[in-house]
């Protein structure tokens, strides 16, 4: 008993130290730097200012923030639309098929996502696999212009992030008590009514956590837009990288990075409250 307590304490101390050194400390440094002024000779000058945060609202930079949020939001919606039916089918499949399908969902994780994004180039480009196939079947006479379009960016984002949506949805649909649906049908609800009044509310926690798991990474995945979208728009991730590397404006880059963290924190807060309130609804029901 005592030794397991000691073990637990060691593990917890280890994790807390790890997080403090590699997560908390760098973020605190970013916060400090974001409040300083840019230096000409030294990277930063010890002058406290909020100007960096003010600059985030300049039109050009604010548009970058809005564009990034819109893109992540759109990726989230697309993943939900594609992931929900799939998660439903997997959860309702016979146990053995289910295992197989889950493994298939997770296999792409074995390959680095940047490499998978470059692999998509080979699929989408003018003389790529997809166009070769379409031309061969005669479905199109001209190769489709897919590369360097918004469509390609969303194909890339949905492809990379879909498993993050499917897994929590699958878990919550699996937990769903089928007898509730039977009862609803018995009491005269149509299939659609049963879905809307029973399935949807009860799988809401899965929807929300899946959406968070897609939205938050999508906000940072600027390389998908660079590789597949032709880098024609600047996203928050590009902007932060360029501020640190090209412009060497550490305070501005830090401010943008802190702002991104704040947006993500806000989202998690929304998530927390929506889970809590949906839990309360369940209690009432």
């Amino acid at each position: 008993m005592r030794s397991s307590n000691l073990f637990r304490r060691l593990v917890i101390t280890g994790i807390v130290c790890w997080l403090a050194v590699f997560a908390l400390l760098p973020n605190l440094l970013l916060l400090v730097v974001s409040l300083l002024e840019r230096g000409t000779v030294n990277p930063v000058e010890p002058v406290v200012t909020l100007a960096n945060y003010g600059r985030l609202f300049e039109t050009a930079i604010f548009r970058i923030v809005v564009d990034s949020l819109a893109m992540a939001g759109m990726a989230m919606v697309l993943c939900l639309l594609a992931g929900y039916p799939l998660a439903y089918i997997i959860a309702r499949a016979p146990a053995r098929t289910r295992q197989l399908m889950l493994i298939l969902v997770m296999i792409p994780f074995w390959t680095n996502s940047l490499i998978r994004t470059y692999a998509l180039v080979a699929v989408l480009k003018a003389n790529g696999v997809l166009n070769m196939f379409l031309l061969w079947t005669g479905l199109t006479s001209q190769p489709l212009q897919l590369m360097y379009t918004q469509t390609a960016v969303f194909i890339g984002l949905v492809y990379t992030l879909l498993p993050f949506m499917i897994l929590p949805l699958y878990a919550s649909i699996l937990r769903l008590d089928a007898r509730l649906l039977e009862a609803a049908r018995d009491l005269g609800a149509s299939r659609f009514q049963a879905f809307r009044r029973i399935t949807l509310p009860l799988t809401l926690p899965g929807i929300v956590s899946g959406s968070m798991l897609v939205f938050l990474p999508a906000l940072g995945m600027f390389y998908v837009s660079d590789v597949l979208g032709g880098a024609r728009s600047i996203l928050l991730g590009n902007y932060i990288r360029d501020q640190f590397l090209t412009s060497r404006n550490l305070p501005m880059g830090s401010a943008a990075s802190i702002a991104m963290t704040a947006i993500m924190g806000l989202m998690l807060l929304v998530y927390y409250y929506s889970i809590r309130s949906s839990g309360r609804q369940e209690d009432v029901a």
Partner: peptide, 16 residues
């Protein structure tokens, strides 16, 4: 069509 400093030859070779 695209901004690319990593491997611009690819887009030229594939006819994009």
């Amino acid at each position: 069509r695209t901004f690319d400093s990593d491997s611009p030859k690819q887009a030229l070779l594939s006819g994009e």
